[in-house]
Design a protein around this nucleic acid. Sequence first.
DNA 1: ATCCTATTGTCTCAATTCGTGACAATAATA
DNA 2: TATTATTGTCACGAATTGAGACAATAGGAT
Lengths: 237, 237
Amino acid sequence: MQKTSPPIATEHLPHLAFDSVIFGFSGTQLKILIMEYHNTNIFALPGGFVQKNEHLNDAVRRGLKERTGLDNIHLEQFYTFGDADRNNAEPMRTILVNNGLSPEKYHWMLERFISVAYYALINYQDVVPQPDALSDSCRWYSVNALPPLMMDHALIVEKALQTLRDNLDRKLARGNLLPPKFTMKELQQAYEAILGTNLLRTTFQRRMLSLNLLERHEKQYSGGAHKAPYLYSFIKS
Amino acid sequence: MQKTSPPIATEHLPHLAFDSVIFGFSGTQLKILIMEYHNTNIFALPGGFVQKNEHLNDAVRRGLKERTGLDNIHLEQFYTFGDADRNNAEPMRTILVNNGLSPEKYHWMLERFISVAYYALINYQDVVPQPDALSDSCRWYSVNALPPLMMDHALIVEKALQTLRDNLDRKLARGNLLPPKFTMKELQQAYEAILGTNLLRTTFQRRMLSLNLLERHEKQYSGGAHKAPYLYSFIKS
DNA sequence: ATCCTATTGTCTCAATTCGTGACAATAATA
DNA sequence: TATTATTGTCACGAATTGAGACAATAGGAT
């Protein structure tokens, strides 16, 4: 049951692909969107190809939109993976065959690809992930419990995390990992999930407030038997 | 007078190039290697193409070796430039024509290119820059006085500088901008040239020593009528 | 109403780091 | 031996950070 046709060789730049590490956050867990190909048990990052006259950044935006329905998300390029042997033809051949596609006709997909990798921080809640033509699922996986990924995709995820971790303040503010308004506790949990460490509540709160990135709003009366926390949003600048 | 033949289309990945921002440091000036093409007044960053079975990183290393003779230099990838309109065919056509090459035969060089950009920090003193087949000079220019660069190369330099500026400590330690042994003053001048600001001597010295990146060696008796400074080197780890 | 409890916002105090100037210790030269 | 420019280190207050204390709730229990 294919949603769209697989891409045609002549419409795209050969040997060039992109992959996206799409982060979402739910409760205490940092998650990533992972696709699974039809009948193959092969898992991969969502990615795609660049059309002949398309800006690279636009191609990635297009890919994100197709998978998540989201527009206007900040995408950050973090590395280009260019080893000659990073493409193993076997998994891709399996994917084609199991989708009823001829490896001869789609031979270009078996060749070497350079991949430009991007990450995005999106709000987990307003996304219904969409599989593409070749895959039958596109689901959230906790970064701590990823399935085995094809090719060098595990490395790509690792590098995305490393990149995200430094200068996290600015990156979280630009991204959309949290809902528009959030409590200090939610913010701290997002930091902790990304950094993989625990932070001291009071120190964290003081630091966040001193960064002048947050705007304070009304309190959130959530029904708990305790003082209600303020809601905050990032100042858009 | 060509040193080597220009590259052949079929040996390379189409539409893919790399560019290198090669930093050197002399006295108080941060410099970059810039090539000038034969009889054209066109200036560009040194770059090249990736062979069909070559790792991207190896291609860039090869390019650096050809231009500088240097091996074993740390190269850091910092961004991939992929706008569809970043390649303006005109300058490239001029370069070909003025080199006696037919734009028809080398048509592939006029097409769209994605470029992966790298920077390197090398020791200005042990380099004799080598022009390539199409260019007649490869020279150092101060970052503050660059000639007008072709295509988006000025943007590439700007982004290289931005990247270099944050987390400079670790980057300088990995690079080779300074000779193996240097004084604290030379180190500070390198920082100042890169950051474009003045730093306080005592604070700088204390901070550098507290980073545990430096090893102290013998003093340098340079002939000045004053206390001789210690020499330092970066601890390789 | 009143008490109880979990959570939150802020304060305090010590430890650490940073900005800034002072100062003593040189290498050469006069 | 005095002079001078430069260097390594210290001193002191200011700013930042780590870690705990504590008061202020918002509901639920009584």
